[in-house]
């Protein structure tokens, strides 16, 4: 178990800046997700921790000591890959035992460790199988066991569940989280799936073109995305053009209270669907233009004159249907301006 610090970390591939001045730290025992769209540099960042890529500049510190001079086989990290994770010519047992044998451990010790690692991922009795005789989910479990059996300081996972079906993905996610909690191992998990990141991480680093846009707890990232990019990437959000009129924001025919800080600036208003509530006749007049059934909720698209489409989330008990005329008002919204974001709760 260890802490990890990125110090002005850069990686350049030719003219592509894959990782651009990464600066953040991971606490001992923390579960971090690197989240971002394809090509934003998540894998590159992870591979620099594992030692598969050399930083162009900057440093990575583990418990305060630089590790970038160490080759991958000397680093106390263990990696789980997305695809082709297991050695196909070795049985499950040999896959997990390989690293232990390289360390020259006694046969009995290796045996015990492999068995308890398999136990941990719920695959007792699969020792003799070849990877080809396992399902995709079982293969990833073995890969996790293989990584954990070496008792690494830091566990690295690069989209380990993204080739699995949705159901299995959720189950393995829960299993991984409980293993991580019980071992207390510092974990860095790369994903482009915001739901996965929100449900797993203690903190999420949202990345965009090589840079970290925001590094915060899932609650804060969800409630108050620090930029329009993060807002668009996490959860569902309606963005509205607004005219800044001193103490008020003018949205089409309607107004919302403004904040001192944004005075005189160009602004955009962002609304979470669950912050849109039914209102009396003073509210915004809206027509229900689409209803989607999400199980316990309806996800609605509302057409509001002069504003455009606004997403909303209502309980089933609201009994709304398409073409219904309703009135709504937000009870919370975010104002994005060139210097940041303001949160307003009514």
């Amino acid at each position: 178990m260890a802490s990890l610090t990125f110090n002005h970390l850069n990686k350049q591939f030719g003219s592509v800046k894959a990782v651009d001045n990464l600066n953040f730290e991971v606490k001992n025992g923390e579960f971090i997700c690197l989240l971002g769209p394809s090509g934003c540099g998540k894998s590159t960042a992870l591979r620099m921790i594992a030692g598969f890529e050399e930083p162009s500049s900057g440093d990575i510190l583990m418990d305060g000591k630089s590790i970038i001079a160490l080759p991958p086989n000397k680093r106390p990290t263990a990696m789980v890959f997305q695809k082709y994770t297991l050695w196909p010519h070795m049985t499950v047992y040999k896959n997990i035992a390989f690293g232990l044998q390289l360390r020259g451990l006694e046969k009995k010790v290796v045996e015990d460790k492999v068995h308890s690692a398999l136990d941990l991922v719920g695959l007792k009795g699969y020792e003799k199988r070849l990877p080809a005789q396992l399902s995709g989910g079982q293969q990833q479990r073995v890969a996790i066991a293989r990584a954990l059996v070496l008792e690494p300081q830091i566990l690295l996972l690069d989209e380990p569940f993204s080739s699995l079906d949705a159901h299995l993905r959720v189950r393995l996610r829960e299993e991984l989280k409980s293993i991580q909690r019980s071992l207390g191992i510092t974990t860095i998990f790369v994903t482009h799936d915001q739901e996965e990141a929100l449900s797993l991480a203690d903190r999420i680093a949202v990345m965009s073109s090589g840079q970290v846009e925001q590094y915060d707890s899932p609650d804060i990232i969800y409630a108050k995305p620090s930029s329009l990019f993060v807002a668009g990437f996490i959860g569902s959000m309606t963005l509205l053009e607004a005219e800044n009129k001193g103490s008020e924001l003018k949205l089409g025919n309607y107004t919302l209270p403004s904040s001192e800080i944004v005075k005189g600036k160009d602004v955009k208003v962002a609304l979470r669907p669950e912050d849109i509530l039914l209102a009396d006749a003073n509210g915004w007049a809206a027509k229900v233009s689409q209803v989607m059934n999400l199980g316990p909720f309806y996800s609605l698209v509302l057409a509001i004159e002069g504003l455009g489409s606004v997403k909303a989330l209502f309980p089933k008990t609201s009994l709304l249907k398409e073409h219904d005329q309703i009135n709504v008002l937000p009870n919370r919204y975010l104002i994005y301006h060139e210097d940041g974001v303001e949160e307003i709760t009514l």
Partner: peptide, 18 residues
């Protein structure tokens, strides 16, 4: 031979010959 299989081996501590 996929790169990942070789990287995975390096990751668990294998040297070039291994």
């Amino acid at each position: 031979v996929p790169d990942n299989l070789i990287e995975a081996a390096r990751d668990v501590g294998a040297g070039r010959l291994q």
